[in-house]
Design a protein around this nucleic acid. Structure first.
Lengths: 201, 201, 201, 201
DNA sequence: CATGAATGAGTTTTCATTCAT
DNA sequence: CATGAATGAAAACTCATTCAT
């Protein structure tokens, strides 16, 4: 039943491109292969996306949105700042490990002509891709006001949080670090130690 | 002024390639452009390097060696573990900020078919590019033995150290974080807080 | 008059390549020139053929098939061995003289990396390119069983038959030998004399 | 003792080129490799030969001369025409089998832009490379006058003689025909049968 | 709308030839 | 004379993009 509607088709293009780019890099994802894998004609890509660039940017935006959502799984605005922080960091960590294609794609994305505009720092630290006010931003602001965390500009906080996570996820996916709940907890708690005021626990 | 000898020529190829790749990514550095910028014929590239790959690997090796050297500026084996750590982390930080092309190139390198083998974690955590036993490794081992830092596998320590540095350098270069000695100190000290045993200062 | 369909295009590529290779050798047939002569873009060659190699092999296979067919024109399984032999040899001879490009191409083909696998002896002596059981093989076997021809291994028979033909065709095309029916008959009959048992006529 | 004089140097270039071309074809014999194998600088090739072309033509001429000499080993002008013919044909045959590089080179040579001018038929049938009146020519003339061989133009005789030899040598070198004295005798005698008048033995 | 054949600019790489040393 | 570093034209091949069907 070739009964795919527009959304199906567009989605299958996005999915195919994501898979190919994650696995083989940009070089390994020519439009012809994307179309083949998506089960559509090459020309159709250009019906849904002006450009290959636009396709890639859109993939990234989709992923960023998903990540922003996944970060907040089980997020409890009533819990302590530390718990909120740990929660969000761990969510991000687990999500990336469990979705290595998402991770691989974003890594590709940032190190390419594409990612020049969209810096991860911006995305996570500022107001995301525009749609969702990034909750981390809120937490950090509150934490700063309450003097719970060090008096760093927000991008520094972001770097201290997501730098280790990204590096650790990479090592896990490469088999250098074992993926266990304890390992993840240890790392995100260490991140907290990095940003929390020294006299607090 | 036609006074270039062999080394000059090879060096100018390396420099041209480094510049172009750092600024435009691998896609923006075709051999023709490298040759043009280096002021040599295209064919000359292949006199000095078997491949474009080899050229790129050699650039990376050169940079890695330089970084390893720069990390150790003023390194004092007699000082405390914490001081050694801070010193090395800050050295790395400053070097990357002051050499944005080195930073940009290595970022490109690791997210490309080229960098699959040479993982940053390996390079920094293990014995570097072969010549220098990475002093960080030594420090971490000693620190672990003396129970000064948390009981993490070494790649985790590495992630907690270089993750934030890399992310912060990127933000500085993008103008999101102001580059001051205080900012750098703050960040590397925060990294130390992340890895040090909780009951220590 | 833009009325070419797929086959036309593929055919025009094959024809252009055949012409160029026959006239100028492999060196004189770069893809750019083939495309130009065929009236297509360079890229189109690679839509129909994986490789330049594949193009060349396919040309050869086409020609081999045609030759195999032409060899059998008017072939009468009921006639004497000698008549069958003469018929086939003469057919081959005439075909090559009348199709000098076919001749030139195959000569190029066999003395090149391409022809290493496909030796002419094999092609003619064994089961051809696969489709048609080579009738010469059958004849030779029967002749050997009936002790009509000398007790030579089959490749020797082949050499004694096609060696002179190839050399003579070359000389005809170069104007060294005049092309007449008598000349052809004389040569192929001489070939028969070479292989027939001495006491037979 | 790097005491090579001009002739040595020129010879080593010729020898190196012959080897490389015979083994790898023209594509496998770039001037750089020839120079390397010859133990000279690339530039030196151009001191002894105007061109790569000239080098190759000269190699061919040298080989043709050698072949012409080898054809005549043990040649006895007093013996019968048949014996003279057999002798020369067998000499050629053995020489080519025992000097596969000579064979391989000439095969390469003729199927390349180089060999367009110099056709084998010309070389062998006419007055060789100019220096030696080809003795075969003399024999054939005498034989024709005495009505011992068929009344063929001389290039036809040549084709009937060297066609089978070349094809058979190729098959021997490819392992399709076993190389024995009997095989060689059988073939050259068959060639004689091809050209001799029918009523003679 | 969907398709995929066609395109050609652009990429890496080779190699005969030159010429400063 | 001998050298080999330097050159750039030319080769095979790729791929984003277009457009006739």
């Amino acid at each position: 039943m070739k009964n795919r509607n527009k959304l199906d088709k567009k989605d299958s293009i996005i999915k195919a491109a994501l898979d190919l780019i994650a696995e083989n890099g940009f070089q390994g994802a020519p439009t012809s292969r994307i179309a083949e894998k998506a089960g559509v004609g090459v020309g159709s890509i250009y019906r849904y996306f002006k450009d290959k660039q636009e396709l890639i940017h859109e993939i990234f935006n989709d992923l960023a949105e998903k990540i922003n959502i996944e970060m907040l799984r089980g997020y409890d605005p009533g819990s302590s700042i530390r718990e909120q922080y740990i929660r969000i960091a761990a969510n991000t960590f687990h999500y990336l490990v469990k979705n290595p294609k998402v991770f691989a794609f974003t890594e590709q994305y940032f190190n390419s002509p594409f990612g020049v505009q969209h810096r991860l720092g911006m995305m996570l630290g500022h107001s995301g891709t525009g749609r969702h006010e990034n909750p981390l931003l809120t937490i950090f602001k509150r934490a700063a006001n309450e003097h719970i965390i060090k008096d760093f500009p927000q991008p520094v906080i972001t770097a201290l949080t997501f730098g280790p996570i990204v590096f650790a996820v990479r090592d896990i996916l490469n088999g250098l670090i074992e993926y266990t709940d304890d390992a993840v907890s240890g790392i995100v708690e260490a991140c907290w130690d990095a940003i929390k005021k020294d006299d607090l626990i």
